[in-house]
Simulated assay, not measured.
Amino acid sequence: MDEEFVFKFLNQNLLGCDLVFSFFTSAVNSLRSDSSVRPFPPMYFKEDGIEKDFNSLRSICNSMPPLRDLPFLPNMEKHIQLLTWLYTKCDPISYTFFTQKFNENEFPLNISGFNPKCIFKINHSSSSEQSWNARKGTFNTSLAFHGSQLDRFYSISRVGLQQIFSTKTNPLFGEGIYLSKHLSTSIIYAPYGAGWINSIIGENLSVVAVCEYIDDISKQRKLKDSRGSTIKGMIVVTDSDYIRVNYLLVFSKKIKSISGNGNIKLIIILLFVFLAIILYSNKFLREFKMFK
């Protein structure tokens, strides 16, 4: 049954599944994994039910084959068990992939001058959507960018943006979730990080979230510089329930071929080069013997 669930998810949304596991692996291998892996897979608690077995969990994550190969490999029971929990039991979120040829003019915020490898839209569940609309009431909503380190995005995608992520990285500016109207500002806080070595999106990723926030000024505060002047284009949301992630801009230093055709083409080219060298060598030897 677990296999059917996992293979169904992979078949429907391979890139979305790949991204989720890249986030998870980055969190598991993080130096702050105890706080980054939230929620934690229950099957990797030790016998006392309190201590977390990170060694076993890292072993499974780091030995996970490319997801497109998983249905054809033996002895993958533990890997499939983890993916089943991650995709179907751990508050599953649907990621819709936008092609790399995404028209930036159709995107709701200005991303001109940047070239994300992938853009994902998060499809919120109906219950989540109802709760959001109830909180929003008669208020309008707006969009802004939020940059964070890669190992934070597993928890961000599961439990939402929390103030704890902001207070540790921006202690000088006080509590709150920091947003910017400018991608050039938020991307500074989204350095490239090590994800998952077998990811088809890329091994090293930088991610910026596009967030929707409720325009309730009682849940916001202005960000001021050292002179007391308000910093334009910056928004600080003080209540985690008044913000959600709608899009993910994923930047990759190297994107792999989904079908593997790139490697096949390279092999074919090398074979043609090798044959050409052999034919040229034979021709040269014949001409040399005739001359001799």
Rank of each mutant, 00 (worst) to 15 (best):
P108M: 09
E4C: 14
I188V: 04
L172T: 05
F9D: 15
S199R: 03
H124G: 06
N170M: 14
N246A: 06
D215G: 11
E77R: 05
K265W: 08
S35N: 03
N103W: 08
K52S: 10
I119A: 11
Y87D: 15
Q130H: 15
T167G: 10
R221W: 11
D239S: 09
F24Y: 04
R286L: 09
C211T: 00
K292H: 12
I122D: 13
L279Q: 05
V208T: 00
S281F: 15
K78L: 14
T238S: 09
N170A: 12
G228S: 14
R135M: 14
N11A: 04
E212T: 01
F272G: 04
K256Q: 12
I267F: 14
S184R: 02
K117R: 04
Y95Q: 08
P74A: 07
S126R: 03
S131N: 02
S226R: 04
A27C: 05
I187D: 00
E203R: 01
C118A: 14
S199Q: 06
S240N: 08
D18F: 06
I267W: 02
K136E: 13
V20R: 13
Q162G: 03
N62D: 07
D48Q: 15
K46L: 15
I200C: 13
W85Y: 10
I200V: 13
D239N: 14
V237D: 11
L223P: 06
N133R: 03
S112M: 07
I177T: 02
G16L: 03
F272D: 08
G262N: 08
I231C: 03
L161K: 03
L275M: 08
N55C: 09
L249A: 05
I235D: 10
L275S: 15
P65W: 01
R221P: 05
S155R: 12
L271E: 15
A190P: 01
E3N: 09
K253L: 12
G160S: 04
T84L: 07
K121Y: 08
E287H: 11
K117L: 07
L248M: 06
E51C: 09
I268G: 03
G49T: 01
N13T: 15
K265L: 12
L266M: 08
L270Q: 05
H79C: 07
W85F: 05
G113S: 07
F107G: 02
L223K: 01
S259P: 06
G147E: 00
R244S: 02
D48T: 10
G147C: 03
V6A: 08
L15G: 12
F24G: 05
I60T: 09
K46T: 07
C211L: 01
D18I: 10
L150E: 03
Q220L: 04
P41V: 15
L161W: 05
N103T: 06
T88H: 10
G176T: 01
W85G: 13
I214S: 02
N29F: 07
S180W: 01
L270P: 02
A144V: 07
M64C: 13
S240A: 09
P66C: 06
H146A: 15
V6K: 02
I197H: 10
Y95M: 14
D151G: 04
Y247Q: 04
N263D: 14
S56C: 15
K253G: 11
K219Q: 09
L82Y: 02
